[in-house]
């Protein structure tokens, strides 16, 4: 956790309700590391909303912040509408271009598809380059976050990553960021990785730190367990009450699930232990039978 300082920029992995680095986010809240600049793509939800509600965010450069079928992200809305945080107006493809540029070590990557939209208005995110024939080209400025934080299903001790299902922006975010932390549901042996090298989705070259944390994406999903929609609904309700001026339910949520539990073992007991984990695994299995 000492990799994150006040003011750090973070690239959070996964998308919406899937593969969010939730355990890492809870620990950030416990430590109160603030003034963060958050990148996450293509969309973020519970994690970004929670960090904002806890006052730890200065700016978001996130294409979409949403709780999906549970509605808009209440704390994101409140903080932007009251001017408490800065929220860049952006989309996932220009963020992809920005990560591609950083992965190559280039200052820009061209993106031709957004002309005519207001998405290209932000001079911090875009520049216009002119070629020797005098043609102008829109270019996304490179973005190299201080730390990429991913939650994946498997990794070995050297940081070879094996996603079980969705990868979304993870592969590119790791290549674009200065350093990458991988939180894995389980560690597998380097021998296992070597026996099936085609299953490695991010090679260890791009990963500096590996942490084993079973069920650490909860309340979001991985390729092995379903998102805990009831838990997310509880959060959405508490955050919406807070947006409307009553922070009691949100305080209870924090106390029960974030600041109350001293670590992730404690957290797993707080959410209902083995029975809940079993149910969410079975729910995902049933959707694929």
């Amino acid at each position: 956790m000492s990799l994150v300082e006040p003011g750090s920029s973070l690239a959070l992995g996964g998308a919406v309700h899937a593969n969010r680095p939730a355990a890492f986010v809870r620990e950030l809240v416990r430590r109160g590391t603030g003034q963060l600049v958050l990148h996450a793509s293509p969309g973020a939800g519970w994690d970004v909303d929670l960090l904002i509600a806890c006052g730890l965010v200065r700016k978001t450069v996130v294409p979409m912040v949403t709780l999906g079928e549970l509605g808009l992200a209440p704390s994101f809305r409140l903080a932007v509408e009251t001017g408490e945080i800065e929220a860049a107006y952006t989309d996932a493809m220009s963020r992809t271009a920005a990560y591609l540029a950083a992965a190559y070590g280039h200052p820009f990557h061209l993106i031709g598809s957004l002309e005519g939209t207001n998405l290209v208005d932000d001079p911090e995110l875009f520049d216009v380059l002119t070629d020797s024939d005098g043609n102008a080209h829109r270019a996304a400025r490179a973005v190299s976050p201080d730390l990429c934080v991913l939650h994946v299903e498997e990794a070995d001790e050297y940081g070879n990553v094996r996603h079980a299902r969705g990868r979304v922006m993870d592969v590119l975010a790791a290549r674009a960021s200065r350093r990458t932390v991988v939180v894995a549901d389980r560690l597998v042996s380097n021998r296992t990785v070597r026996a099936e090298p085609h299953r490695t989705t991010i090679p260890s070259q791009y990963v500096q730190v590996v942490v084993e944390c079973p069920f650490g994406a909860h309340p979001t999903a991985t390729g092995e367990y379903q998102a805990d929609i009831e838990h997310l609904r509880l959060y959405a309700h508490a955050a919406e009450q807070r947006r409307r001026g009553d922070a009691a339910a949100f305080g209870t949520y924090l106390d029960r699930y974030v600041t109350g539990p001293s670590d992730e073992l404690d957290y797993r007991e707080a959410i209902g232990g083995e029975a809940v984990e079993q149910r969410l695994r079975e729910e995902l299995r049933a959707s694929h039978d």
Binding site: M64, T66, L72, V80, E81, S113
Partner: peptide, 17 residues
């Protein structure tokens, strides 16, 4: 900087363009 209503934003605008 201070919208009356902040929408969710968008994943992919490029494909529509």
């Amino acid at each position: 900087e201070r919208p009356a209503f902040r929408g969710p934003g968008i994943g992919n605008s490029s494909i529509a363009m």
